[in-house]
């Protein structure tokens, strides 16, 4: 498995209706800290295996979802479970913090 590329059209099926815990990395290509966050999220995806789903969404092309979750600063990471946004983390996050937050919810 690898990271799921999310957009406004597949967000509902991939995230909201997922039976797994889903971590979504909201980013933009012009955002420096996001480019540092990206590789960290990729590592998480490799480590977490089947326990959770890891997705990323470019907020520039997908304003509907970004607006819905009130993304006003990036990178923002939201962890979803059962269709609910249970944890929102704003700013650059390290690997351990993200793994801990996922493990709290799975």
């Amino acid at each position: 498995m690898s990271e799921v590329i999310l957009d406004d059209s597949n967000f509902e099926s991939e995230v909201i209706k997922s039976d797994k815990v889903v971590l979504v990395d909201f980013f933009a290509t012009w955002c420096g800290p996001c480019r540092m966050q990206g590789p960290i999220v990729e590592e998480i995806e490799k480590e977490i295996g089947d326990k959770a789903k890891i997705g990323k969404m470019d907020i520039d092309g997908n304003p509907v979802t970004a607006q819905k979750f009130g993304i006003m600063s990036i990178p923002t990471i939201i962890i979803f479970k059962g269709g609910q946004a249970l944890k929102t983390l704003v700013g650059l996050q390290d690997k351990q913090t993200l793994l801990d937050e996922i493990n709290k919810l799975v």
Binding site: W30, C31, I71, M72, S73, I74
Partner: peptide
């Protein structure tokens, strides 16, 4: 982070 920001280059496009 909810409208108050300190970096136009970072958050401007939002």
């Amino acid at each position: 982070g909810r409208g108050v920001t300190y970096c136009a280059i970072c958050d401007g496009p939002l």
